[in-house]
Simulated scan of single mutants.
Amino acid sequence: MAKKKEKHKEQEDQDEIIRNGEGDELTNQDKTPEVEVNPIDTLQEELDALNDKYLRLNAEYQNYRKRVEKEKSDIFKFGTEKLFADLLPVMDNFERALKVDDASKTNDKFHEGVLMIKKTFDEFFEKNGVKKIEALGQPFDPEIHHAVLSEESDDVESEHVVEVFQEGYTINDKVIRASMVKVSK
């Protein structure tokens, strides 16, 4: 029992030393070192993070705005593409009618009427940016020509268009129908 009292007395003495600030060595060992945080540094880091977030958001918005403007422009530029693609068979039929009528020369008034309608269509197409692809005698280009036949030819250079079966068209430099052609070997 005397030993318990001694141990209890020693504990009270150590607690007293710690409370009075004596025995710094003991308190320093028990405490973990605290890092002083400067509030200005913390605020600067938060400001930098928010500024970075703002710059990224602003860049994303600018990219979005440019993308929307381009889409609007493309819609305006190519919005009539389907309409003209649907009108191409009508244009083909006018061209066929003119070829047949040229060969037979049966009715000059009919021929003039069809020619006037064809001319009106040509002007309408041109006014809206639709152009015929010039293919005859041109080098073969798979982007604008669709080769359906090929033949040996001494008169024409190799890989050039010899005959056009169906005219091709572009709208604002975009192919809406490739020309169907015969190509020389």
Rank of each mutant, 00 (worst) to 15 (best):
L26C: 06
I18Y: 07
K66G: 05
A97H: 01
L88Q: 02
G23E: 06
T170A: 03
E163S: 05
K53Q: 14
K72P: 02
M180H: 13
K109Q: 06
L136D: 05
F125G: 02
D13F: 06
E163P: 00
N58S: 15
L115A: 11
E6Y: 07
N51G: 10
I133R: 06
K131N: 15
K131W: 13
E159V: 01
S153V: 04
A85R: 04
E95M: 06
D24Y: 02
K182V: 11
E71T: 11
Y61G: 09
L115E: 04
K70L: 14
N128A: 10
E134G: 05
E126C: 08
N107C: 07
S179M: 05
E159K: 04
V175T: 03
N38V: 12
G23I: 04
Q138M: 08
Q29N: 07
G129F: 04
F94M: 09
V156L: 07
V156T: 08
E163H: 09
V130G: 00
E157W: 00
T120N: 12
R65G: 08
E6V: 14
Q44W: 06
I117P: 00
T120M: 10
D102R: 09
K7E: 09
Q11N: 15
P139G: 01
Q62H: 13
K70V: 15
T80H: 02
S150Y: 07
P89W: 07
N128G: 08
K5M: 11
E36V: 12
V100W: 01
L57R: 15
D13Y: 08
T42H: 09
S73Y: 13
F76W: 03
A85M: 04
K9S: 15
D86T: 05
G21F: 03
E71A: 14
F78C: 01
N38M: 12
K77I: 01
E152K: 02
K105F: 00
K132M: 13
E10H: 09
K66F: 07
L57K: 15
L43V: 13
L83M: 06
F121I: 14
S158D: 06
K132N: 10
E81Q: 03
I133Q: 04
E22N: 07
R56H: 14
T32F: 04
L57E: 15
Y54D: 05
R65C: 06
F76I: 06
K3T: 09
F165N: 06
E112M: 07
K99P: 00
D41N: 09
G113Q: 05
A147E: 03
Q166M: 08
L98M: 08
V90G: 06
F165A: 08
E163C: 00
K105D: 03
K5G: 05
H160Q: 05
V181I: 14
V100F: 05
T80D: 05
K132W: 03
K119D: 12
E157H: 01
V162L: 12
L57H: 13
V68Q: 12
E16L: 14
K53A: 15
E34M: 11
V90N: 04
L50R: 13
D15E: 11
A103N: 10
K3W: 12
K182I: 09
S153K: 07
G21N: 03
D15W: 13
K53N: 14
D52R: 10
